[in-house]
Amino acid sequence: MKNFEYAQPRTEQEAVALLADQSKHSVVLAGGTDLISLMKRSVITPDRVVNIAEISGLQRIQRDEHGSIWVGAAVSLQSFLESSYTTELAAAQQIIQGIASLQLQAQGTVVGELLRRPMCWYFRSGHGLLAQQGRMVVEGDNRYHAILGNRRSAKFVNPSRLAPALIAAGAFVRIIKPGNDERFLELESLYQTPDQDGQTENVLTQGELVTHVMIPAQRDRLSAAYEIRHGEGPDQPLVSAAVGIQAERGIVREATVVLGQVAPIPWMAVEAARNLVGQPLNEQTATTAGIEAVAGALPLSGNEYKIQLTQVAVKRAVLRAAGLECGGLECQPPLEQDHHSGPLMV
């Protein structure tokens, strides 16, 4: 690892002051689960590392007078999961439970998870996010790459597992920079698809710090997430979907459908969500939402399978939100006792 300067500010102001120096490439360290390994591989070679983990104001989860939950940038996934706040955030709870590594939950932070760098192996091998304007991905092994939003150079997928769930919950982020400048962005607007070398997968500029993610009160809004994974290990899911649904007497009044691991940004399946409105929640409408979510998909040579998986993820997320089914291993029908009996067993 290339050496660097290290500082451990005590307040937000100190942090942005340390990040502001334009002559230095500065990065923010919180849990370090992603950043340190990228630095070891020299994918990122910062001049300065600013550790925000000890800023007491960022270690808290608070609820404001409107019922919104403010999660500080130093709050671990585990602290968030164990707080009483996640009980009303079914989708987020399901996702963090699925990041089933004690170490990642304890060491990783909520905001850090939202800002993980892509897992694209060309990026992680030092070829940059665009990997020769997308050529390496198109001509190479692209089984985990994008099927949506991939028509230009960027073919990687946004790696955040939590982002779709929090976007579906209507989350915002608070961003500060020196001079008491603060701005609020809808979480989905934090992400962008880079088009030129040097751009990243988020809109943060040098010196900016995401201090909080704020999640509005969900009240009776339904939500669920569904990730399709190789197995139960800590690997990245192949695809995921998260939904937030406001229903009245069984009819959808408003819906948000967000896909993960399929595009360079958490993908808003706008059409699928809009067409759910006015519909009852059942297997048929859930299936339709899944089909509509991938209507514009353009698979690469090795990832066509993701289309089917995404349809299934959306369908199961919708049904899970409605409390109708969870799908997958968790609720298989009871095994038929006499399945193997009969002529073959004689």
Binding site: E65, S68, W70
Partner: peptide
């Protein structure tokens, strides 16, 4: 660059946080 339009209160949040303490 949107301000949160609904359901967020900076005032309540800033109370007791490091931001308010430093600013004051």
């Amino acid at each position: 660059m949107s301000q949160p339009t609904k359901g967020f209160s900076r005032r309540a949040f800033l109370r007791g946080s490091g931001v308010a303490a430093a600013a004051s």
